[in-house]
Nucleic acid binder design. Sequence first.
DNA 1: CTCAGTTTGTTCCCACGTTCACAAACTCCT
DNA 2: AGGAGTTTGTGAACGTGGGAACAAACTGAG
Lengths: 254, 254
Amino acid sequence: MTSGRSSRGGAPTTEGVSRTASAKAPERGIPEATVARLPVYLRALITLSDREIATCSSEELAAAAGVNSAKLRKDLSYLGSYGTRGVGYDVEYLRYQIAREIGVTQDWPVVIVGIGNLGHALANYSGFSSRGFRIVALLDSDPARHGEPLGDRFIRDFADLETIVREHDVAIGVIATPAHAAQDVCDRLVACGVTSILNFAPSVLSVPEGVDVRKVDLSIELQILAYHEQRKSAAYDADALTEPEIAAAVVESA
Amino acid sequence: MTSGRSSRGGAPTTEGVSRTASAKAPERGIPEATVARLPVYLRALITLSDREIATCSSEELAAAAGVNSAKLRKDLSYLGSYGTRGVGYDVEYLRYQIAREIGVTQDWPVVIVGIGNLGHALANYSGFSSRGFRIVALLDSDPARHGEPLGDRFIRDFADLETIVREHDVAIGVIATPAHAAQDVCDRLVACGVTSILNFAPSVLSVPEGVDVRKVDLSIELQILAYHEQRKSAAYDADALTEPEIAAAVVESA
DNA sequence: CTCAGTTTGTTCCCACGTTCACAAACTCCT
DNA sequence: AGGAGTTTGTGAACGTGGGAACAAACTGAG
């Protein structure tokens, strides 16, 4: 078990207290960056598993996941020592361990709020159900949509939210409404006891402590690409100019 | 005017050389984390602008964008000195400067490949067109879908890709196909000269140097939420156990 | 003009994340 | 058994990012 530890963090600057309340003492603490990659590793392992590959090296798995092998090994080391030196990783075993660590070995009931174009796409998305996420309700505030069949469910009234959340013990909510409705929906979800929210609406949500929000913003992703694309073109332009011309252009733009 | 001054950059820590070769010397280098936030600031400024607010402080803008004000000021400082001390930022002016820096003051033709549920949602998404992104083609390899109207376009054959890309000088492609088709589509896009790709398919794309890929993966986002959700529950469980019991449980699971 | 009040731009420092490089631990062959 | 070859797990160096704090630069009142 290598009780050593040490080296991590090192300076307990703002901690000191810590032991105050109850738990929180060990805080196994898998870094956030690692958590974000675990699902990628899991998918790569599932692919290998489907191809009936029993064992793989960190190099192979890293290639399948699109990362550097040293990073992969360090990431996996936060979970424990699940590999064998000189051999590699057992695909099925590692797959199970990662799935357990992420929590996808259990069933997660999910509600989707806002059944427009995106909501339809989400409701039909097979990637949800295949990873332990079960859509228990599709909610919309527009009465014209109530009762409409979608996937293996029917669209229901957003007013039924609280009943549904309590009945199915829902912890995760997906917001796919227009931006102007997102904060209201979010507040309602939180009030019902939902503590994790995936937000597709282009708006900043404010939530109380203890509630996690992740946002997916299509427009922002495109803008980031546009920025880099613009710089690629600018690099060409810069090559076409001599240094004095660059200096002149800089002054001009100021 | 403030001709001289500058003061940008400040600490030439690891630079020193820099002046060596031709271009690449200045390399204004906005940090990636900052680039990812600029679209958020832009959206916040547009909201303020719509409310006819002429000026705002870093504190106000930071609140609207959901970030810390020191971080916001530092981010903006990479673009230049666009604020006035003791006053704040001119909303319209800053809005324009950020839009120009990101590149959304110009028009970006975009093709979407794979018109399933998600492709439909993307084609109808207003956030694209409102930020300078113009969808010039919706492509799918399924002949049954060709000619189908969607938004203000018709679905066309994927085989037309090269013609369309050359005709409209498309630099950005969106992949919304099933996972198994994504790498092929990606290769075709790259071969036609597309250098920025937004990938919605749950697969790792490999591209040559110089091509940017960003991925949006709904399933991964949910899994990250599930991980944190699981730990919240685990915290409760831990509270219910005494320390020896925790130790026992840990050993057992290993 | 001067002074008090306000807000930006920047510096400094710490925490986090990435990568290299290598010892430890395993397999396989002779 | 022993040694060569392979691959993991991790220590250490490096780079990036975040936040507190403060000097610089502005406004406005007297």
